[in-house]
Design a protein around this nucleic acid. Structure first.
Lengths: 183, 183
DNA sequence: GTCTATACATGGATAGAC
DNA sequence: GTCTATCCATGTATAGAC
């Protein structure tokens, strides 16, 4: 049920891509259909409306989030390090969906998108709390991650000075803080 | 030249409000005109096109940013403390314009909005660098601020657990870090 | 300086052929 | 399952009256 390399999946991919690259407004049925290699009518056979596309993305997000949390939970380097690192990595399946939903949420037209993101963030929050006892630091970790996502969501494709190596510095700084505060 | 309580200003206000509250897509000429108390035609007399509205916002942003940096520079509590605190305060003239531009930037249709935000962030970066010597920590401070803005921009009106008092904890944590790293 | 009327384009969605 | 044709709503922008 989760693994169909069908037209449906590639339409969803195209929608995701369109939203990320050109914004929700530009992600018209026609544009998405063209990118997915079908016609408007063809698209509408699989997704009866634009809202259905959003719903499809939400569903995908929930599945990916579950997997993401699972991987995070068993990350050998620790939850926080892995978490922050993965926040820069904007080129995974997870990130694509997450960023697309971020855009949709901001459009104000899709409360379901906002809800899905809230669920994800809530999962992260709980997990981080298991590793970081100080609530202020835990909050700080989440804010840094949000900041990283915000950056990549806002300046798509633009290298904005938060490269992977620079993030290592940030991670180390957070580490110092966590150690200093854990007594 | 900067102080006209004219229709032009109130139209710009209405546009800003519309973008923040309902997203860029809902900020149609008609909706903005209605909110500003003029007709579509009336609006278009002052702003010949939708792009002119965006340009007006960008101009406003540049003016406000200058004032903001000035205030930050002489903040008695220090630049970082003031900076982070003001990132939660989403109810100033500055924040309204900033958040509206954030939304516009994400729509992908207004590069000028992205540019304006880049200028603002660049001003902040430079200023923070004068107070925080460690580049990783300086970057962290910016990311936290971005995170806070992202939160308020994404969940408008929603109390998302980052209240003013909780932010004090975050500020103190950052303070610890700055002190620990400044030798 | 502000309004009404209207032209024009575009996007979402339906109907029905293949 | 996918396409074409078409309808309808909405949004931007222009023209011209007041």
């Amino acid at each position: 049920m989760a693994q169909k390399p069908t037209a449906k999946a590639s339409i969803l991919d195209a929608y995701e891509r369109a939203v990320i690259e050109n914004g929700e407004r530009a992600a018209t049925l026609e544009a998405v259909a063209a990118d997915a290699g079908v016609s408007k009518g063809g698209l509408l056979y699989h997704f009866g409306s634009k809202n259905d596309l959003v719903a499809g993305l939400v569903e995908r997000m929930d599945e990916l989030a579950e997997a993401d949390l699972g991987a995070l939970r068993v990350a050998p380097e620790g939850i926080v390090r892995r978490f922050i690192r993965s926040s820069v990595d904007v080129d995974t399946t997870f990130d694509h969906t997450y960023i697309a939903l971020t855009r949709l949420a901001q459009s104000g037209l899709h409360p379901e998108a906002t809800d899905a993101l809230t669920r994800v963030e809530s999962g992260w929050r709980d997990l981080i709390a298991t590793e970081v006892s100080d609530p202020a630091v835990a909050r700080l970790v989440l804010l840094v991650s949000d900041g990283l996502y915000y950056n990549s969501a806002l300046w798509p494709g633009v290298e904005r000075g938060t490269g992977t190596d620079e993030v290592e510095g940030v991670i180390n700084a957070l580490d110092d803080l966590i150690r200093a505060r854990s007594h």
